[in-house]
Amino acid sequence: MIFSDDPGLQPILFGLFLSMYLVTVFGNLLIILAVSSDSHLHTPMYFFLCNLSLADICFISTTVPKMIVNIHTHSKEIIYVGCLVQMSFLILFGCMDGMLLTVMAYDRFVAICHPLRYSLIMTPRLCGLLVFLSLLVSLVDSQTHNLIASQIIYFKDVAISNFFCDPAQLLNLACFNTFINNIVMYFVGAISGLLPISGIFFSYYKIVFSILRIPSSGGRYKAFSTCGSHLSVVCLFYGTAIGVYLGSAVSHSPRNTAVASLMYTVVTPMLNPFIYSLQNKDIKRAVRRFHSRTL
């Protein structure tokens, strides 16, 4: 196992990652059920939050179950098809997370900068279209990476140095020059990463200027408090993602890369429901109502 080769630590790692996986699935599923069961939360913001929670469940499910199996079997091998499938879904749901965070930033922009036109702009049809486009962009990004990897790499099985298959690791297994494919893959990755970040940055640029024009400090705080949970998740998601890629570029240690990737692919999806439930009174009320109904 990449985190530790000590056989005595394997049961501890097994229990730790299994617990983190169950907490993530349960926490995000609880948000979905609480929002779905509370008619007061049938708004665009919480519709996007439900989709984000669903994407987080799928995102962590692409890596942690395989990692738990590897710990249990003391193996780091993965077959060729399994590696490509895992990489495909990892990129799909990772990109989906970024796109949904961008859509949520746009929702906050409309709510704060155009409050009187909010219900006219953020219609159910537009919300559904935005989620569909997020899925479509993520699918194109995922299949582009998958197509490039499948054309230049073939192996029966491989011992992965991380706990999941990532594009950079697969390219290192190619038996010939992959310069052009590297360029294409990193270009696609940059586009799928920079576009959401640019959209989020532009939305909050407009939001901050709109909030600063509010005369009372109480009004400014109330307006900005509606963005607190989303902004925290954005910083956590992109902060850990950027840290993974910068860390892998600077350090060639497989263990350091694995630890950084763990933050990005496991810890972030686990913390998202806690961030929203702790900072959002509506979510806390909805969870309490849902809990009282199930008793």
Rank of each mutant, 00 (worst) to 15 (best):
M1F: 01
M1D: 15
S4N: 03
S4F: 00
D5A: 14
D6W: 01
G8T: 02
P11R: 04
I12L: 04
L13F: 09
G15K: 06
G15W: 04
L16Q: 01
L16C: 12
Y21I: 00
G27E: 05
N28R: 15
I31D: 03
T43R: 08
Y46I: 10
F47Q: 14
L49W: 05
S61A: 04
P65S: 10
N70D: 15
S75M: 03
S75A: 13
K76I: 15
K76T: 12
K76E: 15
E77G: 00
L84G: 06
L84A: 04
L90K: 15
L92T: 08
T102W: 02
A105C: 11
Y106T: 08
Y106K: 07
V110N: 12
P115K: 05
I121L: 11
C127M: 02
C127F: 01
F132I: 04
F132P: 12
S134G: 15
V137Y: 08
S142T: 09
H145K: 10
I148M: 10
S150I: 02
F155G: 05
K156Q: 08
I160C: 01
F164P: 05
L171N: 11
N172V: 02
F176A: 15
N177L: 02
T178R: 09
F179M: 13
I180W: 00
N181C: 10
M185V: 05
V188M: 07
G189D: 13
I191N: 14
L195Q: 07
G199Y: 05
Y204K: 03
Y205A: 14
I207P: 10
F209P: 08
R213L: 03
K222R: 07
S225A: 09
G228V: 12
S229R: 14
S229F: 04
G239H: 03
I242E: 11
G243A: 03
L246C: 12
S251N: 03
H252M: 10
R255P: 01
T257H: 09
A260D: 07
L262F: 08
V267D: 00
P269E: 15
P269G: 06
P269V: 11
L271E: 02
L271G: 09
S277Q: 08
Q279T: 04
K281E: 07
K281S: 14
K281Y: 05
D282R: 00
D282A: 15
R293W: 09
R293Y: 04
T294L: 15
